[in-house]
């Protein structure tokens, strides 16, 4: 049986991990390579690196990080943040990333999804969807936002998810902009709506504050994987604790 994936996300800017300073037992918890190796040993199923301050000149730092991480850890590695072209994708994949995660560039140019999938295979192309909840008289909906949440694209998130999948995305990384960083739980309705609308796997992101939240996303939210940053970085829970908890509640999980 396919297991549900637990994916720590490392936010990196200028070559340093932004969160995670509470890892007192690591020599340098700000070093993405050291933190990645730590999560690998702890049993992470996959890792996501998000370059949150990505500009062309610091992209080279990220490439160096990806090269060094891929020499040490032998689980899938996804890199996102600021990737704008086929050439950007190629450089990351060549450096050792297994997948690239793209948001703004594919909203502006959806054909890039198809081009990327044709060049590198669908399995390499993760479309990141940042969704904001909008209340209206006839209920609510979600619209996607780009540029790290700063811009609203005025596009319906569910419709975009379907389009991205049909254009060749291998996976969707769905982040609730409202829940992100709030530790209030994932937006289960958003995750479920998208997961039911597409046939590709969906990774839930944004809002995890405890282990119950992970469980909810994988059951009620129908997610295939959960991504979390805060609870792992600030050691509210370890990855092995998360796995024990989920396994005890009947979720298929990889251990050992």
């Amino acid at each position: 049986m396919l297991t549900k994936r637990i994916i720590p996300c490392l936010d990196v800017t200028q070559g340093r991990v932004v969160k995670g300073t509470s890892f007192t037992h690591l020599r340098d918890a700000g070093d993405p390579v050291e933190l990645a190796a730590f999560y690998y040993r702890e049993g992470a199923d996959e890792l996501v690196f998000l370059d949150i301050g990505a500009t062309p000149d610091v992209r080279d730092i990220m490439i160096d990080i990806v090269e060094r991480v891929s020499e040490q850890i032998f689980i899938p590695l996804t890199v996102g943040g600021g990737l704008r072209s086929i050439e950007d994708m190629r450089r990351m994949l060549k450096a050792g990333a297994d997948k690239v995660s793209i948001n703004t560039a594919v909203v502006q140019n959806p054909k890039l999804i198809t081009e990327g999938a044709e060049k590198f295979g669908s399995q390499c192309i993760v479309v990141a969807i940042d969704a904001k909840r909008l209340e209206s008289s006839d209920g609510h909906k979600w619209e996607i936002c780009t540029h790290g949440g700063r811009k609203s694209a005025g596009i319906d998130a569910i419709g975009w998810a379907k389009q991205a999948a049909s254009l060749g995305a291998g996976e969707l990384l769905v982040t609730s902009w409202d829940a992100d960083g709030q530790r209030i739980g994932y937006d289960l309705e958003l995750t479920r709506s998208i997961s039911e609308a597409v046939t590709v796997p969906v990774i839930a992101s944004g809002g995890a504050g405890n282990l119950e939240h992970l469980y909810e996303a994988l059951t009620l939210g129908k997610a295939d994987a959960v991504l979390a940053a805060t609870i792992f970085h600030y050691q509210i829970n370890s990855i092995s604790e998360a796995k024990d908890y989920l396994a005890a509640r009947g979720i298929p999980i990889r251990k050992g």
């Binding site: 049986m1 396919l2 297991t3 549900k4 994936r5 199923d45 669908s122 399995q123 291998g170 996976e171 046939t199 590709v200 796997p201 295939d224 994987a225 990889r254």
Partner: peptide, 13 residues
Amino acid sequence: PPGFKIPHIGWNQ
């Protein structure tokens, strides 16, 4: 076969 998410992505036995 249909009925499961495709691609099959992740850890399996």
